[in-house]
Structure formats: C-alpha cells, structure tokens
Amino acid sequence: MILPKNYFLIGLFLLIAGGWSGGVEASPALVKEKQCDTCHRFSKTESEKSAPDLFFAGDKFQKDWLGNFLKQPEVIRLAGHTRDPGFSKGTPQYTGPHPVLNPKEAQQMTDHLMSLKILKDAPPLELPALSKGKRVRVKILFERDYSCIACHQSYNLARQPRGGVSGPSLIDAGRRLRPEWVYQWLKNPRQFTTRGRMPLYTFDEETLRKMTQYIMSHKKDSKSK
C-alpha cells in the first residue's frame, strides 16, 4: 500500500526526472550554449543589456516568424539597439551578424522563447483588416499626428520603405509581432521596459486599435525579401 505522503515523493521524483530528461530544460541549456544571455535579458530583474529583452518573447513574437528568424536572421533595428553604447552616435558596438541556429536548435529555441510571457490573461485581439480608405486615415495619424515615421520605417503609399531608423523597422511587423503585444505596447510600454526612447502616448481605445491594425498591416512582399 502506498501512503499519501509517498504519492507526493513519487510525484516530486517524476517532476525532477522529467526536467532532467531533456524536454523542458533543453532550451535554457541552449540559451547558455549559444550565449544568448550575453546580449538578451531573460528576466526583468536582470540589469539592462544591449539587445532586445526576451522575457516576454512569447507575448511579442509570432511563432513562425521567430523560427525563421533564428535560422535566417535579418536586421530589424537599422541603427542598432537603443541600449547599445554607440547608438546615439550612429556607431553601434554590436553590428552583427546575429548567430544562426540549425533547424533543430531553432525549433527548440522557438518553443522555449514562445513560453516566455508576462501578459496574464490577455484576451485575443480581434482586429478586422483596414479598408483602403481607413488605412490612409490611420497613416495620417501614424505619420502626422503621432510622428511615428520619424523613428520607424514603414511603407509609403507606393509601398516603398521610408522613415527613421532609431526605432525597429515596422516593414514586416504584421508577420513579426503579435497584435495583442502591439496593442499593449502602444497602451503602456512601461509594462515591458522601465525606460525607452519612444514617447509615451495616451491613445483612446479606438485610436489604439486603429494604430495596432495599421502596424499589423505592414507585411513585407515576398518579392522584396
């Protein structure tokens, strides 16, 4: 007969053994092996590092994009990361290239990163596509009323990239980012970072949704990749 106390011990053993067996622990080991934590923060309590924080990667990124990025990295921050010591002078210390993972490693890392979330109970955001006319009106908000174009690359009406480079490019934001994260970032970026170079805004709910829709409408053409 197994006493109730022993059920606990057996459960504890299985939990530990399960962790040692690979699955869950494999990706953090890969983080160390690839030295991702040299540049990226995996916890909000770590001191600031010079590459994007990853402790909310599961909130921020789309899984397919992330997997592809890890296998074939691309430059998103054309002037380097805002925390790079040489950022403001236009001479970032880190100029890449970002390490490349093989398909198996990329799969493991993607699964791990997508498990890192800080948004609790965030409901899915349902955003219908913008009509052509509405898109033009939100584009005016994006470029004229809120000056986003000064720091972020986006498409002009002729589908050509234009805009500043101090912020991350939004050219492929619709494939890279999750709408729920874009919405929360625009609402209050301090949820994710204590200090950033982007102005804070107080969008009303309708504008917040329109801006999110507009950013998510940016998808790189397969031809222009």
């Binding site: 403001s88 002078k89 236009g90 000064a150 720091c151 234009r162 500043g164 480079v165 101090s166 170079r197």
Partner: peptide, 23 residues
C-alpha cells in the same frame, strides 16, 4: 537630451542625429 533628442538632433545638437538623413 542625449537619450531622447539626440536620435534626431544629434549628440551635439547640430541636427544630424541617426534619423536625420531619413526624414
């Protein structure tokens, strides 16, 4: 100034920040 303004106005205020040539 260095943290926010220099992105466009440059670290020395000459208006040649990293965004300048893209505006």
């Amino acid at each position: 100034y260095q943290f926010y303004c220099a992105q466009c106005h440059g670290t020395d205020g000459h208006g040649k920040g990293i965004n300048a040539s893209h505006l």
